[in-house]
Every structure is written in structure tokens, then in C-alpha cells.
Design a protein around this nucleic acid. Sequence first.
DNA 1: TAATCAAATGCAACTTTGTTGCAAAATAAA
DNA 2: TTTATTTTGCAACAAAGTTGCATTTGATTA
Lengths: 138, 138
Amino acid sequence: MHPRIIDTLKRNQLSVTDSRKKILELFLERKAALAHADIEQHSGDEFDRVTIYRTLQTFVEKGILHTIPSADNAVRYALCKDACTEGHHHDNHVHFMCDVCGTTYCLDHVTVPAVQLPKGYQVHQLDLVASGTCIKCK
Amino acid sequence: MHPRIIDTLKRNQLSVTDSRKKILELFLERKAALAHADIEQHSGDEFDRVTIYRTLQTFVEKGILHTIPSADNAVRYALCKDACTEGHHHDNHVHFMCDVCGTTYCLDHVTVPAVQLPKGYQVHQLDLVASGTCIKCK
DNA sequence: TAATCAAATGCAACTTTGTTGCAAAATAAA
DNA sequence: TTTATTTTGCAACAAAGTTGCATTTGATTA
């Protein structure tokens, strides 16, 4: 098991349970974003659907995962960088969604360029989602 | 009734029906993005849920509406500019979602900046969604 | 290590959201 | 006005998400 798993949970004052370990592990080994349905599939019948919902929610609140907006009614989740803490996300990198294989990547090294909005709009978060064909599929 | 309504429908070879007129009218008068649920509310019990789903789908296909990705499992729709035609959307403007009132705006005059992605990623679409506090709510 | 407390899980029931097929109704064309 | 085509509404269903509560598990303390 990945050494970061227990560490991450403890650092966030979460009790170490089977479902949390397993779900974190999935994210660590896949390195891609996962939707609720993906997790349900890849964890077999090991956990109840409800547990997965609640675990994802907890991880987002703690700053372990962030959500990636999409136009297909299937919100995806991905690991946050260490900069994220409880209630404070800093995931202003670009996300890429492949139209062919459906994989969603966090492009950690591509930062979202500054954008000049009309006066009066206060921006708290910027999400840039690109879609197209990924390296593997082209 | 807004004069553009019937015109828009005919230009896209769609028959002019009550639901299509009403839904288009909603978008024209509100000037903000609407989710399926919003439309259901604001049209009373006038139309069946299924009709609304199908109408939205048709409008997106025809290039009358475009979708706005979101992280809350509620895809929103907004009017396209005239440049959009059947199967070809050109809505590369920024969207702004207010955390307070929930309103989503198309910032038509703010274009999405070009982004340099790692080699191998072919981008077909770029969506930039900003969120924070809008003019009315600050 | 065992007992206790708090937190997380699983289950059941439910609500909401989205889809599909088909008959009836409305629109467009002749 | 009649006919052909499209769209709609209904029903039934499937999928996605939520809530309350009893049970189990993990953490804490003696």
C-alpha cells in the first residue's frame, strides 16, 4: 500500500478506515480524475454506494480531493496538491478531458493565465477545462 | 413576445411550437444561464419534463444554446452568439458563476486566453469558468 | 489489553434526475 | 382542408444522490 495513504488521513484528522484507504489508493495509483461511478466500479462491491458518496465529500472538505467541472453531469474528483487545506483549495491548474477514452488529467504544470474580468466581479476560483484528444489516443 | 424567437427557430429549420417559444423566451429575457431545473420552475407545469430535456438537447445541437460546465452536477445552458451553427460552437468566452446568488453569466467580451499545453494534447475546446461574487451580490 | 466513547459504515427507504418507446396531438406542407 | 411529418405527453424505467438509524469499527483512556 502506498505510504502516503495513512499519512494523508492522519494529517487531516480522519480516522483510518478501509474505505478511505482504498479510495485514496485508487486515486494515487491511477493519477487521473475519477467520477463516483468509476470508483464504484473499481472498488468492486466492497463498499456501499453511500459510503463512497460520503468519503468523497469528506475528502473534498478536507482539501484532499478537488472537483473538476464538466459539461456531462458527471463531476470528477482528483487529488489536490499539498497546498490545499481544509476549506481552502488552490487548484488553479488546467484540466484536460479526452473525448476518446474519457480520461481526465490534471495538468499540474500548466497554470491558468490571469484573466481581466469586468469591474465588480470578484473571482475566488478559476477553472480551465480543455477537451480534445489525449496523448494516448491520438 | 420577443421578435427574435420565431426567427431563430425558423432559421434553424425547427417547427415553431409552444415549448420551444417559451424556453427560448426565458433565455432571452433573463440573459443568464439556466439549468434544466430553472426552466422547469419558470415554465410552471406548462410542459412535461421530457419535453424540456428534448428541447434543450435540440437547441444545443442546432447551435442555439451552449452548455456551461459546472462542478455541482447541474449543467447550465446559455444562448449562443450568431456565430454558432449546427454542430459548430464558437463560445470561447468566459463564464462567471456567483457563489452567493447562483447566477451564471456569459462574459461575452472576455475571451479565453490561449494556453500552452504539453505536447501531444490536441485541444478541441477550452472552457474557462470563474466563480466568486457577482456585481449584484458584493 | 480491555472497556468506553465517538465516528464511520451499511441498509432501507426515498427523492431527484435523466432516458426510452409509443400513442396522441400539433405543426408544416401540399 | 387534407396529409405527412414532427413534437409532445405519458408511463415506465434506470441511474444518481440523500437521509435516518441501528450496527460496526476505529480511537482513546484507564
